[in-house]
Design a protein around this nucleic acid. Structure first.
Lengths: 189, 189
DNA sequence: GTCTATAAATCGATAGAC
DNA sequence: GTCTATCGATTTATAGAC
């Protein structure tokens, strides 16, 4: 267990610089509107240096997806360890809120950009995580009402944190208020 | 008052074909990831024919924004005519839900794509509509709690309708269930 | 790990015929 | 309203020196 700089992914410092710059640009111009030239300029290197870290643009997109999905998988794994389905759902929601609030721009890119959504659907590993998330959010019977609730919860968490109206709020306030509003939608309380 | 084919915008048939194809492709690949070549191929014409309808890609984006924002402005105008702020908010939410449910892919593109978001912020006309929407949603004092609620409402409506979990639901069911969950978040009920 | 240089493809956009 | 043909800029991606 060495001290790993930022996240605990097996990335070099140069790779971390690339994906951090990529996420910022993806959020600002969209993935399709972000060129490798823009990423290279943002870091202060040339395109060729970026290609040395990731052999294609798709690999960068994949690395971004990997970084955020790791946090989500961690949350759903913790949730699945709970005793009741209601507790599991609450634990997952808490994890999702923490994740979304702490990395607001990241959450935006991941759940919003069509190219990222396609990336998440194309890789079985990501699809599996999303399936577990949805199953935990739904809890029991997948009737229309519960499915709309699950979709509403996911959309709320991912979408509210990047709304201009809350851009100036600090993490603690946003997290607390988000919890307050979401809790009112949950049954049996 | 002549009988206008689809929407009541002053568009020719060829222009309508272009923006309908554009919206579909924008939703699938993102705006930045959609080329005029793709739009032209989708309609079955050449790029030059598309350029004859809209002199630039920005003009197409603008036309898409115009089409959806027209519906939103209609809703907020109707809401502002209500007597109480609470009623105004409810009327606006109802309009937003109708709009989002009926044109699900449209809602996705409009509120999700970074390029579209920038387009909405750059044009004073759109910024003004969004300001009226936010003011109506907030109702009174813009304290953090109310602002998070407004952000949550907007994010929920726009995001839930395009979630995969509800893709197979018909409009009436989705609308009703969405109302049910959102109503629980509203105060004084 | 970063650079220069360049290939091959595609992009947005325009000109002019029909 | 649509076409062919093309320009110039930009894109992804590669080769090879340091």
């Amino acid at each position: 267990m060495k001290a790993e700089p930022p996240q605990s992914t097996g990335n070099t410092a140069a790779q971390t610089r690339v994906i951090e710059a990529a996420v910022a640009l993806f959020g600002e111009h969209g993935i399709g509107g972000t060129s490798l030239q823009m990423i290279a300029d943002s870091i202060g290197v040339t395109k060729a240096a970026v290609y040395h870290q990731y052999k294609a643009k798709d690999a960068i997109i994949l690395a971004v997806a990997e970084a955020v999905m790791a946090g989500l998988e961690e949350g759903v794994t913790a949730a699945e360890g709970e005793r009741s389905r209601a507790r599991a759902r609450d634990v997952l929601i808490a994890h999702m809120i923490d994740l979304a609030v702490e990395r607001r721009e990241w959450a935006g890119v991941l759940q919003r950009d069509p190219i990222m959504l396609r990336c998440l659907q194309e890789h079985a590993r990501f699809r599996d995580v999303m399936k577990r998330v949805n199953r935990t959010l739904i809890g029991g019977a997948p009737d229309p009402r519960t499915r709309v609730l699950a979709a509403t919860l996911a959309a709320t968490i991912a979408g509210a944190v990047i709304h201009p109206l809350v851009a100036d709020l600090d993490d603690a306030t946003l997290r607390a208020e988000l919890w307050r509003h979401i809790r009112k939608m949950l049954p049996s309380r």
